[in-house]
Simulated assay, not measured.
Amino acid sequence: MSAGVHPDVHWPPGWGPDRCDSFVSHQRHVAAPADAVFTRLVSVAEWPTWQRGVDRVEVAEELIVGGRFVVVAAPHTLDGIVGELVVPSRFGWAAVSDRLSFYQSWLLLDVPSGGTRAIFHEAARGPAALLRTSDRAELTRSWLDALPPSV
């Protein structure tokens, strides 16, 4: 297991920090309860309103494990596939395009004193120019920072 990887994160076969070109990990305490954070994460059609870099999302079917959606994050059009969906604690999805692919895993843990510990991991594959870890880290950090501070 790579350093910085939470032991309770589930990786689908063929994915994970040891099987990618780039890996980023973030975590943050959010004052909102896990169910509020989870609801925001799985409302994929609304990602363009709060996820930096996401221009459009097209959802044609129910969001279930194996469910598909399309994410347009110029210059990429990504085919999204839900890999894990456990209310209100886990959301994982794979994104595949012609030059870039990644798996994002979100783990939401209740904090006894209140709120949620949001843990985000992303393992990505593609050309080095698309996967500069510092660029991916900055972009994905902005997604974590945009989670609801409270309800």
Rank of each mutant, 00 (worst) to 15 (best):
P13I: 07
P13R: 12
G14T: 12
P17A: 15
D18M: 06
R19F: 10
R19N: 08
R19M: 11
S22Y: 00
S25M: 01
S25Q: 00
H26A: 11
Q27V: 04
H29W: 13
H29G: 05
V30N: 02
V44F: 02
V44S: 00
T49I: 07
W50V: 06
Q51I: 05
Q51H: 11
R52H: 14
G53N: 04
G53M: 07
V54K: 02
V54P: 01
V54I: 13
V54N: 08
D55W: 12
R56A: 12
R56F: 10
E58M: 09
A60L: 14
E62C: 13
G66W: 03
G67F: 00
R68F: 05
V71C: 08
V72A: 08
A73L: 01
A73S: 15
P75N: 08
P75E: 10
T77R: 08
T77Q: 14
T77P: 00
T77I: 14
T77E: 15
L78S: 09
D79N: 13
V82A: 05
V82D: 05
V82F: 06
G83K: 05
G83M: 06
E84I: 06
E84K: 10
E84D: 15
P88S: 04
P88H: 13
R90V: 14
A94D: 10
A94H: 07
V96S: 12
D98W: 10
L100N: 03
L100Y: 14
F102D: 04
D110Q: 12
P112Q: 07
S113Y: 09
S113L: 13
G115E: 02
G115M: 00
T116V: 04
I119L: 09
I119K: 00
F120P: 01
H121L: 02
E122V: 11
E122Y: 01
A123P: 01
R125W: 04
R125G: 03
P127S: 09
P127F: 11
A129L: 12
A129S: 12
L130A: 07
L131F: 08
L131W: 02
R132G: 05
T133W: 08
T133Y: 03
S134W: 12
S134K: 14
R136A: 08
T140H: 02
S142F: 06
W143D: 04
